[in-house]
Simulated assay, not measured.
Amino acid sequence: MSWYVLVETTVTVGGDDRWELVDKIGVEGGREAALAKAQELSRTYVRGAQPEECGRLVFRTSPTSWIVEQTRSFWGDGRESTSARHLHIRVAELEFVKETPPAARPRKGWLRG
């Protein structure tokens, strides 16, 4: 099967934070190539800002997984503030695919009275 680098980040929905898959990056060359790409992305991947505007801490939590804290400084309310975003970066092998079936056309008169 194929190797991917998966990127997850926290998103806020209704006041609650949850992890969401935001990027799937296919990698040619097998597991070792995917590991190299994931390590590179743990040091360079940025969402919502320019790379040169961000600081980061990179933690390798397993041979195939990193947690990244991406920080950015900005001015607000007359003072400097810092925001943080967290990312999971993981190497994964695609094991199974089932394509999404096409949506069924609504029956005539269905939900239309």
Rank of each mutant, 00 (worst) to 15 (best):
W3N: 12
W3H: 13
Y4L: 11
Y4F: 15
V5Y: 07
L6H: 00
E8A: 09
E8P: 00
T9Q: 15
T9S: 12
T10V: 08
T10Y: 14
V11E: 13
T12Q: 11
V13H: 07
V13R: 06
V13N: 14
V13I: 11
G14M: 04
G14R: 08
G15P: 06
G15H: 02
G15R: 03
D16Y: 12
D17P: 00
D17K: 07
R18E: 11
W19K: 13
W19V: 03
L21W: 15
V22H: 02
V22Y: 06
D23Q: 14
D23C: 12
D23V: 07
K24G: 09
I25D: 10
I25F: 14
I25K: 12
I25N: 12
G26S: 13
E28H: 15
G29V: 00
G30Q: 00
E32I: 03
E32R: 13
L35N: 01
A36H: 07
K37F: 03
K37C: 08
A38N: 07
A38K: 03
Q39T: 15
Q39F: 10
Q39K: 15
E40Q: 14
E40F: 12
E40C: 11
E40R: 14
E40V: 08
E40D: 15
L41I: 10
S42G: 04
S42M: 04
S42A: 15
R43P: 05
R43E: 13
R43K: 13
T44W: 10
V46R: 05
V46P: 01
R47E: 15
R47L: 15
G48P: 09
A49I: 06
A49V: 05
A49T: 03
P51G: 03
E53R: 11
G55Y: 07
G55E: 10
R56S: 01
L57P: 03
V58R: 00
V58K: 02
F59N: 10
F59L: 14
R60S: 06
R60F: 02
R60G: 00
S62C: 00
S62I: 01
P63N: 01
T64K: 06
W66Y: 06
I67A: 08
I67T: 13
V68Q: 01
R72A: 04
R72V: 04
R72T: 04
R72W: 10
G76Q: 14
G76P: 01
D77F: 06
D77S: 14
D77G: 11
G78M: 00
E80A: 09
S81I: 10
S81N: 13
S81F: 11
S81E: 08
